[in-house]
Design a protein around this nucleic acid. Sequence first.
RNA 1: GGCGGUGUAGCUCAGUUGGCAGAGCAGCGGAAUCAUAAUCCGCGGGUCGGGGGUUCAAGUCCCUCCGCCGCUACCA
Length: 673
Amino acid sequence: MSRYLVTSALPYANGPSHLGHLAGAYLPADIYVRFLRMCEEDVIYICGTDEHGVPITIKAEQMGITPGEVVDRFHEIISRDFERFGISFDNFSRTEKPEHYRFTQEVFLNLFKKGYIVEKSMKQFYCDECSRFLPDRYVGGTCPECGSANARGDQCEDCGSWLDALDLLKAVCEICGSSPAPRDTTHWFLRLNAFQEWLEPWLEAHDNWKSNVLNYCRGWRNEGLRERAITRDLDWGVPVPLPDASGKVLYVWFEALLGYISSTKELFTKRGDPEGWKKYWFDPETRLVQFIGKDNIVFHAIIEPSVLHGLGSYVLPWNIPANEYLTINGEKISTSRGTAIWLTDYLAHFPPDPMRYALAINAPENRDADFTWDEFRSKNNELADVFGNFVNRTIKFAHKAFEGVVPEPAVEGQAERELMASIASARDEMEELLRNFKTKAACLRVMDLAREGNRYFDQSQPWKTAHTDRNKCATAIYYSIQLADSLRILFAPFIPFTCEKIGRMLGSSSLLWKDAGGENIPSGRKLGEPEILLEKLRKGFEEVMQPEDSRPESTDGEAGKPAIKETVSFDEFMKIDMRAGVVKEVDDIEGADKLFRLIVDMGDHSRQLVAGMKPFYSKEELINRKIVVLVNLQPVKIMGVVSNGMVLASDDGKGGVYLLQPGSDSCPGDGIH
RNA sequence: GGCGGUGUAGCUCAGUUGGCAGAGCAGCGGAAUCAUAAUCCGCGGGUCGGGGGUUCAAGUCCCUCCGCCGCUACCA
């Protein structure tokens, strides 16, 4: 027996989780962990939400709530979705826990005293409007090399030159648009270069790791490791535990990795064994296995081992089975373009197992894998037809021909011996595959065994022998039931919910890997009633999943503000054409209490608009007023008058409506973006 | 720009150290009727992105071109 410490990447709590997360870091880990438990290995599975960093503070501003409320909300949603998907964490913590703060600060001080962390002064742009320092990409401006206005703090979008943010001409804050000024600041850097000599041979020794991980590390190593800043000017996060460091927090990637350890500590505290975590993190025999997506390779294969090595005595990763990405309809999943499929939405309509199966058998193990609803339906139906139907036909037959009692096998012929041998070899091959993180191949293998079950059933023809040779019939059903139970065991890491149902029908609950291939269901046992295990899906089934359904982001905003609407892509936004205009004429519309007919000067033309402004503005207030007009809105007739666009205004939801007004220097027809 | 990945049957994907191109689904033909219109048997189908090279032998190694994707370090 070995000791395993399995982790999945800490999900970032600035939004709910989607299929890509599940397929990359959680489902493969869960399958691995369930399998190890069935082999009676000593295994714990650790995770938790990563709750710090700038994107969370930005999200909080967008939602009009505090960062703490953001992470509370998404921690809830993420942990609930994973639980409903059967991801069997032993502990799912969060980096906002006090224990995590204490531990992270301890680690910081430890490395600081050893000289692995150093303090440096530097200049950085500071935005007075936003009251924050601006990391490279939050600064825009004019490129000093080529004069393009599309430069960012790190690189010019047009000429590609590498830039220092401070060299930008006409620097602009990308958040609020105001002009930031350089200001002195102090940051702490992790001296990764100090670990390079140790790291190279350590990586070399792991030539059994997946090639994507090794290649990625090789690239980094060739560039050389540099000092890396591990602090930020922010008030959200774990404070730097040094005097004169107010306003400085430890940066996410540094502290989040330590979340694996603090989550383990929490687990053992809950178990009443506060020292128990040490045997997982300090015993060199422990196999630390970290499931991640490919975007996390550098942190887990280079930075985390360096930090742990710097601390001394901690175990280092035994393997890092990084997965590639899941694409949807051939495109990268993008939350901003709205192409993500949220776990919450899926679970509102469908059970977890079909998705677990579909993602396991087409996992992004070696390269990006594509997900489509058509493919999902095909996999779901395959599972229902081949596996679900095999179990169903077997149990139904037992009820029909043997009153639901497992019959006595009379003869064990060639076919039966071959069947049992076949189960045993499937079990052993799958074990080999699963131990080597070949989840997809293992899943294919167990489906093969289910096909073999159908073949055995067909060739035995119990529906005929029921009338001609009771013994043969009983034998066929007896062995089909044994196979059903073995399939229940071998499928359990992949589709645990379905296997539990089968267990209830067979009166069998053992989840020991070695039991597969045995004759576990004795003759004479009364079987449960057969039920449909897996529903088939028809074309177009996914249409029940529409955006208006329980989308987690659409939860009601605070203080009576409307909820934030569905995300639109930049391209979609760019379709919107807004321009400045000046109101030239205002007329009443006959029969309308609230509407005005406006004639607006758009610079190169004038156009007629209908706007519901009468309750809020008088004609005199409107004449010659500068307004913002959405000009490419589909024209519509209101009370018989054509409106060619929309006047933009803010609405406080309490009856107050206020026209947007371009600045005093703007001219009619000016574009707005 | 640099680095890395990827391109195999209509679709989704496997193809260890070079050694006769594979699976599932879809399609076509047949068998069967216990079962969720499920199952089983058989068949067809690929210039392995293009071109060049090394080799007795290349999907696999080398060069080059094309397409797509990712990373490029105070982005998480």
